[in-house]
Structures are given as structure tokens and as C-alpha cells.
């Protein structure tokens, strides 16, 4: 019997494919699949959420409203004024029957305003202090009413729940933290462009409402000038593709285009002190 160890051909146990040539197609497939799945399911959830009667939305919102009610009613004057303004705009916007708007004033230096479930709007003191006219404020209030009218809060809730569910299910099939971060990033960014679309819709609806109430759009561009100044000071702002709102310049340009198209001007209403 003779013994020998013949030379084995090298690399027979290893795939010839370059690691990156395998990695990038793999990454592409996963990205497309996750984005597609999230987009499809959240779109479906969004259109279903729109069908939830506003009455039910108000019931869900009771929890939210309880937190928003002013503790001692110290800002009743401001809230009353804001509520009156909202009412005028809401009438102009022809809200469906039963859809009531409740404005809450938050005496806080935050420069912000938002609409939430059940027709509740929150306007922060910081924003109110920095706005030069009622017209600019009306644009903000009308923008938030437009979100309520277009059912954006409930759609956002439905989509948010669905996206969490999808991401949660995808997390279950991998224990790699890197893959999880990737999936999460994809899930969040793939819903942002939809949010920006909602903001554009709300901007257009708001401009029409302000036009209806005041007869012109003079003074409203001050809102975007305020955002622009704030953005210039805030170096840490996210790039547009990662932001929920369209860029300030884009929004200002749309508003100016609309104003130019109408060609009407008028006097700016000051804010009551």
C-alpha cells in the first residue's frame, strides 16, 4: 500500500464571487423589499384610516385632549382669540359636519404649532410672539386646520402603527443589530416623502382659506421668512430628504407663486396685544 497526499486544488471550498459583488446586490434587494413593503402597507393603512369616522377619532382623542386642557385657564383670552380666528378660517374651509376645531395655547417659548387627533390644535407662545401679523398667524392656523380636514393625524396614526408592526416583524427575522438599524432607517425615510406631500396639501388649502377670509395673501410670507431666519441660526437642521416638511424656500416659492397668480394685495391685520 502506498501513501501520498496529492496537492489539493486551491479555493475549491470558497465561492469565487467578490464579497462586494455579492454584498451590493444583496443590499439592493433588501432595500427595495423593505421600502416596498413599508410603502405598500402604510399606504393601505393610510387609506383605511381615512375611513374612520371623525366621531371615533374624537373618542380616541379624549386622552390627548385631557393633556392639552389648560390647568387653570390662565390664557383664556389668547385661547379665545385663537379659537375665534380658527372658527372664521374653518367656516371658509367648509369642514364636514361634526368636525370641530379646538385650539389650545401653550405658553412656552417653543416656535411651533401642531394639529393632533380629534381636531385639537396647539399653538405655542414662542411662535405667537415672533409672528408680525394676524395674516401670518392665520396661515399657521389654517395649515393646521387643513391637516384636520384632510384627516392627516388619524392617517399618521394608522400609518405609524402599521410601520411599527412591519418593522417589528422584520426585526424578528434577524438578530443582527446592523441589519436592524438599516431596516429602521429605511422604514422611517420611506414614509417621510409622504409626509411632505401632506404638508404641501395643507399649505395649499391654508393659502386658499386665508385668501377667503382676508381677500389677499399679504403678510403671510412673513411665516416662512421666520422659518428661514431660524434655519439660518440652526446649523444642526436635517437635510430636506430627512425632514418631515418641504424646504422653507420651496414653500415660500409656492405661496409667492399663488399670490402672484391672484395679483391681489391688501392691508395687513395686526395682532391684538
Amino acid at each position: 500500500m502506498s501513501y501520498e497526499n496529492p496537492q489539493q486544488p486551491d479555493g475549491i471550498n470558497v465561492s469565487k464571487t467578490h464579497p462586494l459583488a455579492e454584498f451590493f446586490p444583496l443590499l439592493t434587494v433588501v432595500v427595495v423589499a423593505v421600502v416596498g413593503l413599508v410603502a405598500l402597507l402604510s399606504l393601505a393603512a393610510g387609506s383605511l384610516a381615512r375611513l374612520v369616522p371623525f366621531e371615533y377619532e374624537q373618542k380616541i382623542a379624549r386622552v390627548v385632549a385631557a393633556e392639552l386642557l389648560p390647568p387653570g385657564g390662565t390664557h383664556t383670552d389668547t385661547e379665545g382669540y385663537l379659537q375665534g380666528l380658527a372658527q372664521r378660517l374653518a367656516t371658509e374651509m367648509a369642514l364636514p359636519p361634526g368636525m370641530q376645531i379646538h385650539v389650545h395655547f401653550e405658553d412656552d417659548d417653543t416656535v411651533n404649532a401642531y394639529a393632533t387627533l380629534g381636531g385639537h390644535l396647539v399653538i405655542f407662545g414662542g411662535l405667537l410672539d415672533r409672528l408680525p401679523s394676524e395674516n401670518a398667524l392665520a396661515l399657521v392656523v389654517a395649515h393646521e386646520i387643513a391637516h384636520v380636514k384632510l384627516r392627516h393625524p388619524i392617517v399618521a396614526m394608522g400609518r405609524g402603527a402599521t410601520v411599527s408592526l412591519v418593522l417589528g416583524s422584520l426585526f424578528g427575522i434577524t438578530d443582527s443589530s446592523a441589519v436592524r438599524s438599516l431596516i429602521e432607517f429605511l422604514g422611517v425615510t420611506s414614509t417621510l416623502s409622504y409626509n411632505r406631500e401632506q404638508e404641501r396639501e395643507a399649505d395649499d388649502e391654508a393659502a386658499r382659506a386665508v385668501l377667503g377670509v382676508y381677500g389677499h395673501l399679504a403678510g403671510t410670507e412673513a411665516l416662512f421668512e421666520l422659518f428661514r431666519n431660524m434655519a439660518a441660526r440652526d446649523l444642526a437642521r436635517p437635510p430636506e430628504f430627512l425632514s418631515t416638511h418641504p424646504g422653507t424656500e420651496e414653500r415660500l416659492a409656492r405661496l409667492k407663486a399663488l399670490a402672484a397668480e391672484l395679483g391681489v394685495s391688501g392691508t395687513v391685520t395686526p395682532l391684538p396685544r
Binding site: V14, S15, T17, P19, E22, F23, L26, L27, V29, V30, A33, I173, T174, S176, A178, V179
Partner: peptide, 16 residues
């Protein structure tokens, strides 16, 4: 690990 993690979602040879 990342490449194998992605592979785990689809299946196939984990050549890395």
C-alpha cells in the same frame, strides 16, 4: 456579519 445578516433575510450561500 452585515453581509451574512442580509443573506439571512433572503437565503442562499453565505460565501463570506
Amino acid at each position: 456579519r452585515l453581509a451574512a445578516g442580509l443573506r439571512a433575510l433572503i437565503g442562499g450561500r453565505v460565501s463570506v
